[in-house]
Design a protein around this nucleic acid. Sequence first.
DNA 1: TTAAAAACTGCAAATTGTTGCAATATTTAT
DNA 2: ATAAATATTGCAACAATTTGCAGTTTTTAA
Lengths: 256, 256
Amino acid sequence: MLTNPVTNMLKKERQAYILHQVSLHNSVLSADLSNSINVSEDTIRRDLNELAETGKVIKVHGGALSKSFNSFYLRSDVYNVDNKKIIAEKAASLIKDGMFVLTGGGTTIIEMARLLPEDLKATFLTGSIPAAYEYSQHPNIEVIFIGDKIAKKSQIAVGGEAITRIRHIKADLCFLGINALDTEHGITDNDWDVVQVKKAMVETSAKTVVMSISEKLNSYQRLRICGVDEIDVLITELDPSDKLLDPFRLNSLTIL
Amino acid sequence: MLTNPVTNMLKKERQAYILHQVSLHNSVLSADLSNSINVSEDTIRRDLNELAETGKVIKVHGGALSKSFNSFYLRSDVYNVDNKKIIAEKAASLIKDGMFVLTGGGTTIIEMARLLPEDLKATFLTGSIPAAYEYSQHPNIEVIFIGDKIAKKSQIAVGGEAITRIRHIKADLCFLGINALDTEHGITDNDWDVVQVKKAMVETSAKTVVMSISEKLNSYQRLRICGVDEIDVLITELDPSDKLLDPFRLNSLTIL
DNA sequence: TTAAAAACTGCAAATTGTTGCAATATTTAT
DNA sequence: ATAAATATTGCAACAATTTGCAGTTTTTAA
């Protein structure tokens, strides 16, 4: 952060200026401030210490952070849960009585499982331990677990056996929680085994529904699961008309 | 996760960014973070270590995992926990490195799973959702889930597919939590599907270990799993010399 | 098993912090 | 107003932190 040098400030003025900069950028570097106000870094440091002592900023090595900064990142957990619930509700509305539904794991899927209507009668097939657990709590849902070796990170079954069995299933719908999606690379992930399983799921299902919070859009990872053209429905927490979704408006893709 | 590079971050900012990415994607790779923030992998590793030390993420080889993702299954108040723990400890002592262990579900099995030593390297095969979850929390244990339709009451996979696969396994040990046992009727249960699965497990294993709180001894139910002569080890919370166990002192049966 | 990837270790360079001190500037008391 | 007291500021020497690198060990995957 570099601005025009300012001179001859009183201490209070200077500190007010610093506070302003912090609230503007969420963080400041001592070196930059020293440059823009033309005082020594010692002075800046002393200012920052005072502001930190009175709780106005958070002092860190090399500068200071805005106080709201911390809560911004900390709340992301909760805030994502809310978004995931929005997604989950849209997703749940796609499932009709009698359907065969193939799903992966992931927190969004879990949220969806919890939101399934009590009276829904359908068959869910999954290789995810937490998802299977959630499905099995529902009174009218049949759960088929697709077993194999359990990948510890993701808590889902992976391996040839699982993939073979997935390919023998002709599901009506496939719900996929994903890690990254963009128009160029399609759905991508970074776990080889998981990618194999998800690939099989997409290929064997009549329709593929992708659930993703909007933050995961326009990022990509190393391994490709499938292209955007193989997705039938994209669900985010955003309104379907949102600008962020413009790149995904294709003939083959429904946005919810 | 690959996004546009960001530069000149304060350490805290960087760590907040990492946390955000972890909560977003459930997992991060050190290499990817190093790319997107333009710092060396060493720095990322040090950050991840710090975040792991303060319990914000779970560090794994190559990156880190979200902490919130794990732990869906809460131990509801288990009947007779203390006795079950005694049983579980005895049972755990039977398992040696390299073994293939086939287990059912049930609260006693879950307790055993929690008591397995950290350094035990073995392969566990099960059709129980809670058991598979517990096994998968251990660092050195391979978990194979034997999938099929999930029986809701017992949260285990039942059906022809599961049975066929169980019969193809030649396990060293089979651990069974049971509902009823007496010398006349052997192991008995009252759920048809579950009985089929347990039968297959007993028949395909080199040794069968039965875990039961003493209350369940000398009672029986409608459906027979196997006779007492097919059991190799009987574990209860009692001292092996206890009078209650006298009826079970046979040549073929070890009492622990 | 072996080979590659990742982690750890110690280390050096750069940056940032701390402290004491002297030079100024500002305030206070008379 | 003026001197004394007090605050502020910059500087220099030294301490601490952070970061990247090279060499080694450990872990992982084939």
